[in-house]
Amino acid sequence: MGNTLWGMEITADQLSTAFGDTLYMVAISLIFSGLIGLPLGILLVITRKGHILENKWIFNVLNPVINILRSVPFIILLVALIPFTRMIVGSAIGTNAAIVPLIFYAAPYIARLVENSLLEVDKGIIEAAQAMGATTWQIIYRFLIPEGLSSLILTFTTATIGLVGSTAMAGAVGAGGVGDLALAYGYQRFDTMTMVVTVAALVIIVQLLQSTGNFVSKKIRRR
């Protein structure tokens, strides 16, 4: 097949496929966990005592459930969810199969981070919104989210980086990706060069994500 690179046991093709797989897994699971985590995070904020949609029941159910999910290590989630994953994607192995536990892992994490971001929004602003006669929905998307946006962006940066790390473990179900390569070749076969290259690649990805996130967040805050 392709040529090996820099004395690694893997080919350039393998490396670029792994990159593609990582990006794919991170992107898809980020989208889904974001779609789940964002509303849950908002719900955690607005249903708490004294907030715009105070609701003891929703808050007292949601809060511990998220805590429990957050405390399960990813690798256990990965195994525990196998039957469910098989039901959803038809297989428990492969890139798509890894996305299901990744979503389960990231969604509650994102919910909690979103909650923290939105709690930073000054209560006075919500009060001003209520005084203006804003609807609950308007308060969320015209006041809470814009005011918390800068912080939310950092939240999603953190979540994305967390997902990059977790995809490495997803190699356990044959998910592929850069992390998988690092484990399979670098660690298990003592291919030092592969190890160095893949880890360097991961470091660069994470650095890029973090500085982009910081930049955008600051840009919003600075205005």
């Binding site: 000054d122 001003a128 006669g133 005011e147 946006l149 919003i220």
Partner: peptide, 18 residues
């Protein structure tokens, strides 16, 4: 609708910084 007929200002202004 009634709230639109009642304006309010605050000690700490409560403007949207964004």
């Amino acid at each position: 609708a009634e709230k639109k007929k009642i304006g309010m200002i605050f000690q700490h202004f409560n403007l949207l910084n964004s």
